[in-house]
């Protein structure tokens, strides 16, 4: 943990919030994979395991009224943004009580009213959409900040440059967070680009850009907080490249054999959950019993969400017909 973070002497309340968020994502993904394997979840499920530190740190620096836009690997962003786990599980189980009433699934969970513009099944699409939300905020005279979570893969897509450039010429309150997990499915980043330091791309078009250890939730938080301040001072946008690594394959059914064992071991040794837990213990004197209690509480919350989803009904054919009549 870096000295600056220690000096800032975060409160127990804050550290507990960070740990709770990161751990909640971990539980959601771990248990969600079990539901998938039981056949309760269909389609794609891209786990955020190993990357929890990024969503956790970023969202902790935002406030009500801000916006986020997410990726195909979006469960963590929703949870960190404060989504109701019940409605998330219900969506994965294609139930009427889900965020999208079962119309969207894992790759499309959104909560527009709360400023979550949604996960996205199209790699890279969240960047122009997020810049658009930032533009809408500017036109309305609001100081809301929009964060788009994007990926190393999406950094090679044309809209990455087009939309970040628009954010730059218009000085938008926009933060682009690249989750550089160093793989796009099975393609390592070294094969996808010549310079793997993705933050440099922002520099080339005059955007303040930084690189951070994405597995360190507090470092991510502090950097994002500065970026938010920069934006609210009218000096946005800001680019943050957060380096990280997946704990498993690209999606639930990808064994990920192509991921080198040493690199995986390196990142697992820097697990964001362990670090969030350690920070809470070391800096606020919380003891093991307290930690166990928090973990048990989160596990119970997830179990409740599963019950809620299982008991929920699906959209009826009549409701479906009525909804789509306008098309």
């Amino acid at each position: 943990m870096d000295e600056a973070v220690k000096r800032n002497a975060p409160s127990r309340e804050f550290l507990e919030k960070i740990f709770r968020t990161a751990y909640k994502i971990r539980v959601f993904e771990t248990e969600g994979i079990k539901l998938y394997r039981q056949g309760l979840i269909r389609g794609y499920f891209h786990p955020y395991l190993g990357q929890e530190g990024i969503a956790t740190g970023v969202c902790a620096a935002l406030r009500e009224g801000d916006y986020i836009a997410s990726t195909h690997r979006g469960h963590g962003h929703c949870i960190a943004w404060g989504a109701d786990v019940k409605r998330m599980v219900a969506e994965l189980l294609q139930k009427e009580t889900g965020y999208c009433r079962g119309y969207g699934g894992s790759m499309h969970i959104a909560d527009i009213g709360k400023g979550n513009l949604g996960a996205n099944g199209i790699v890279g699409a969240g960047t122009p959409l997020g810049v658009g939300a930032a533009l809408a905020a500017q036109i309305r005279g609001s100081d809301a900040v929009t964060v788009t979570f994007t990926t190393d893969g999406a950094s090679n897509n044309g809209t990455f440059l087009e939309s970040l450039n628009l954010a730059a010429i218009w000085n938008l309150n926009f933060i682009l967070v690249i989750e550089n997990n160093q793989y796009a499915v099975s393609t390592p980043i070294e094969e996808a680009t010549r310079d793997t330091d993705l933050y440099k791309r922002g520099l080339s078009i005059g955007v303040e850009s930084h690189q951070v250890d994405g597995n360190d939730p507090l470092a991510v938080y502090h950097l994002t907080r500065e970026a938010v301040e920069t934006c609210r001072a009218g000096k946005g946008p800001v680019l943050i490249e957060a380096k990280t690594f997946r704990h498993m394959g690209h999606h639930v059914n990808d064994p990920g054999k192509y991921m080198p064992e040493e690199r995986l071991a390196f990142y697992k040794a820097r697990d964001p959950i362990d670090r969030a837990r350690a920070a809470l213990v070391e800096m606020s004197g919380v003891d093991k019993a307290d930690i166990d209690a928090i973990e048990a509480e989160i596990a119970a919350e997830f179990a409740e969400a599963v019950d809620f989803a299982k008991e929920s009904r699906e959209i009826t054919a009549a409701e479906f017909r009525q909804f789509v009549a306008a098309y």
Binding site: A125, P128, L129, V131, G132, A136, S163
Partner: peptide
């Protein structure tokens, strides 16, 4: 894309 995002 930015227009669509603003509309959303």
């Amino acid at each position: 894309g930015v227009g669509v995002g603003a509309a959303i």
